[in-house]
Every structure is written in structure tokens, then in C-alpha cells.
């Protein structure tokens, strides 16, 4: 069953929060993973792996560089579900 974008955002925020220690409320759509949330490449790959598992999608390695903001990731995951 497909998750709504709102559910994806909430789930992603939880994953990011547990990885970084930042409060989930601070993981807003417009935030940049690297510039705003200070996430390094290894942490980003961890988040991608956990998100793939949680939302039953595949995020190809080549796609990860395009996921600049949280919103980018939410949109990609929403699109990849179908």
C-alpha cells in the first residue's frame, strides 16, 4: 500500500532524527541534507538504506546526488512506490 507524501515525510524525519540526533520537527521539506542537516555521505547512505526498507522502494545510488532537500527525497520515494 502506497504511503502518502505526509507519511513519507514523517517517516523520513524519524529516520533522519535517529541518525543525526536532530529533532524530527526540524526535518522540514525545504531543508538541505548536507547544508542544513549536516549529513555526511555515509549517513546519507544509511538514511537511504533505511528509507528503502521502510517504504519498500529502491533508490538507485546514482539518484542519491539528486536528493538535495528533504522534499526531493519525499517526492522521489512517493514516485518510486507506484
Amino acid at each position: 500500500m502506497a504511503h502518502s507524501e505526509q507519511e513519507i515525510l514523517a517517516g523520513l524525519a524519524e529516520i533522519v532524527s535517529e541518525e543525526t540526533g536532530l529533532p524530527a520537527e526540524s526535518v522540514l521539506p525545504e531543508k538541505s541534507f548536507t547544508d542544513d542537516l549536516d549529513i555526511d555521505s555515509l549517513s546519507m547512505m544509511t538514511i537511504v538504506t533505511l528509507a528503502e526498507d521502510r517504504f519498500s522502494v529502491t533508490i538507485p545510488d546514482g539518484e542519491v546526488k539528486n536528493l538535495v532537500t528533504v522534499s526531493d527525497a519525499v517526492s522521489f520515494i512517493a514516485g518510486a512506490q507506484s
Binding site: 555515509l42 547512505m45 544509511t46 538504506t49 528503502e52 526498507d53 529502491t58
Partner: peptide, 12 residues
């Protein structure tokens, strides 16, 4: 779950 689910922090 297969190799795709292996966490990147596993080695360190």
C-alpha cells in the same frame, strides 16, 4: 533482506 539492506555503517 538481501545486500541492498546492509547498513553502510556495518564495517566501521
Amino acid at each position: 533482506k538481501g545486500a541492498r539492506r546492509m547498513l553502510p555503517m556495518t564495517v566501521p
